[in-house]
């Protein structure tokens, strides 16, 4: 359980984090979303005792990170892909963490295998790609099988196969009871994994809700038809909100079965029927842009 209460951080005159509060619960993947510069990284670093808050609290299982006994066994963290000595091998990097935190070193090869780095274990990190560094950061985070995971932009630098793997990995951990907090500035990355999303902009929470709720709000259908005018009129009668763009109709308030019935009634031929995929992305943009005072 991660609990952030009224957390505030000023860097000189800049309020990087401004009275932020949210919680991340066990068994859930919590997406921590916001545009670049929203204060995500600063918040995570305050959670991990690396940055001292100006005011407020950031607690992990009721304790400050610095007060945890053997923190590596309680909280796994992957913060940035660059924090490795280029001259040290991946295996030695993990062995150092094991020694310093009193964890048995047998877990090293296991996490290297788990993150797909078994073949690179003996190579110096200086020769690693960004994706490999991300994998090594993840391997470090899960080394001691901690019940809480805090990951800052873990998908950066991963290829599509890596992102797919990461989603499954985080889902698996959360299903096993872990508290997983994962930050991102790209909504699509967490859209398929997160149970709960906390959206921040300018250091403040602008939305804190289950993902399903946001998806529900944004839901809409894309309908392409050979008879747009007839179908639009029929959908309107069925109580749907229709936005027509040539032969493409963006429909909300009516489900797919409703569209089918309307098409049958209007005698309209459908050429495409599907979910409006950009709906959640639009909600995210609207929420964060509104806070920034710009147009969505």
């Amino acid at each position: 359980m991660i609990l952030v209460e009224e957390l505030t951080k000023h860097f000189g005159p800049v309020r990087a984090v401004d009275g932020l509060s949210f919680a991340a619960r066990p068994g859930e993947v919590t997406g921590f979303l916001g545009p670049n510069g929203a204060g995500k990284t600063t918040t995570l670093r305050m959670l991990l005792g690396l940055v001292a808050p100006t005011s407020g609290r950031a607690l992990i299982d009721g304790e400050r990170y610095a007060d945890l006994d053997r923190p590596v066994a309680r909280v796994g963290a992957a913060l940035e892909a660059t924090g490795f000595h280029p001259g040290r091998t991946a295996r030695d990097h993990l062995r150092v963490v094991c020694r310093a935190s009193g964890i048995a070193e047998d877990g090293v090869d296991e996490v290297l295998g788990l993150t797909g780095l078994a073949d690179a274990a003996g190579r110096r990190v200086g020769g690693f790609s960004l994706g490999m560094r991300q994998r090594l950061a993840l391997a470090t985070a899960v080394l001691a099988r901690p019940p809480v995971l805090i990951l800052d932009e873990p998908a950066n630098g991963l290829d599509p196969a890596g992102i797919h793997w990461l989603r499954g990995f985080l889902r698996h951990l959360a299903d096993g009871g872990c508290t997983v907090l994962v930050s991102s500035h790209v909504l699509a990355e967490v859209e398929q994994t997160a149970d709960h999303v906390v959206i921040v902009a300018r250091g403040k929470v602008v939305r804190d809700a289950p993902l399903a709720e946001l998806v529900g709000e944004a839901d809409g259908l894309r309908v392409r038809t050979e008879h747009p005018a007839e179908l639009a009129a029929e959908l309107d009668r069925a109580g749907g909100a229709v936005h027509r763009d040539g032969d493409l109709l963006r429909v909300s308030g009516v489900d797919a079965a409703g569209v089918g019935r309307a098409a049958l009634a209007a005698g309209a031929v459908l050429t495409e029927l599907g979910a409006e995929r950009s709906g959640l992305e639009k909600t995210f943009l609207e929420l964060t842009m509104a806070e920034l005072g710009g147009d969505p």
Partner: peptide, 18 residues
């Protein structure tokens, strides 16, 4: 200073927050 230069200080302080 190498820990600061290569940003390994982050990992070091995560393992040893005191």
């Amino acid at each position: 200073t190498g820990e600061y230069r290569y940003q390994t200080i982050t990992q070091a302080f995560l393992v040893t927050p005191r």
